[in-house]
């Protein structure tokens, strides 16, 4: 892992009317790392992801990708540069089978430009590439699951489908918005190796999570947010030892649990 920042968020501020959802939040994401963003409900974690990926416009502040400004670009341009995201509320194409869901990102300019055979271009057809990607992400190839309509898939598969959509774009950065929420312990356990594999493949991962224990197993650095501000940033042990973080999470059983665990 290098120290070179791939994504820089500088003084990001977002006001919804009078409410400051983000207040001068700054942090760097280093190339190839797994960065965790945690914080209580309503602390502005998802807003950060929305601002970085262009789904909402920041009131002020800048986002740099590879040192180049991407602030205010439309979401599809940012995704086209390789900064991809998952949605907290899963957004598959419900009326299409799971593997057909991947034909859409594979049709995108980025996948065609960077994907080679995996882009489903000259050598591959997008349906088979879609099934390949689904297999990588944990859909059993020879079962009927990849062929089922997305509307009939359980949460665990839909979360994987979200990740698969990012993978199809040959991403440089994946911003995961609560991929573990709503999953059982065993489902999470089977997802963790995926995150580790992304990292080995050189993909930078930013994870927004409430499941701290699982997050700390993969994340190298943590950014803690509260009321739209960044409280602290550091290694999992450092942030959990911090007094302000304890205060923000006061009463949360999981923190107690994690503390003893750490």
């Amino acid at each position: 892992m290098s120290e070179e920042p791939i994504l820089q968020v500088q003084e990001a501020t977002k006001a919804f009317g009078g409410v400051l959802a983000l207040n001068r939040v700054s942090f760097d994401v280093r190339k190839g790392e797994v960065l965790g963003i945690i914080g209580p409900n309503g602390s502005g974690k998802t807003t950060v992801v929305n601002c970085i990926t262009g789904f909402i416009k920041m009131t002020s502040g800048r986002v740099l990708f590879h040192g180049k400004e991407i602030t205010g670009k439309p979401p599809h341009k940012i995704a086209d540069m390789g900064v991809t995201r998952t949605f907290q509320v899963m957004r598959p194409y419900y009326s299409l089978p799971a593997y057909k869901n991947l034909v859409i990102p594979l049709f995108s300019p980025r996948a065609r430009r960077t994907g080679g055979w995996r882009g489903g271009g000259r050598l591959g057809d997008r349906n088979t590439v879609g099934i390949d990607i689904l297999e990588e992400i944990g859909f059993e190839r020879d079962s009927f699951v990849p062929y089922k309509l997305a509307s009939t898939l359980p949460t665990g598969y839909l979360k994987r489908l979200e990740l698969a959509r990012c993978l199809a774009l040959q991403p440089e950065v994946i911003l995961c918005d609560e991929v573990f929420s709503g999953l059982s312990m065993s489902e999470i356990a089977s997802m963790l190796p995926l995150i580790e594999r992304f990292q080995m493949e050189g993909i930078t991962v930013v994870m927004i999570e409430h499941r701290l224990r699982e997050l700390f197993r993969v994340a190298g650095r943590i950014v803690v947010m509260n009321f739209g501000e960044k409280l602290i940033e550091g290694s999992p042990e450092e942030v959990m030892a911090d007094e302000k973080v304890r205060e923000a999470y006061f009463g949360s059983e999981e923190v107690e649990e994690v503390m003893t665990y750490a």
Binding site: P74, H76, Y94, S95, L96, K100, I104, F107, P109
Partner: peptide, 24 residues
């Protein structure tokens, strides 16, 4: 065709199409 599929995806869920790097 795949193009038609993208059109249907726009109807189904335009946010995900944006997140897939395509202009709705």
């Amino acid at each position: 065709t795949d193009l038609g599929l993208v059109l249907r995806a726009v109807m189904d869920n335009d946010q995900a199409v944006k997140a897939s790097g395509m202009s709705v």
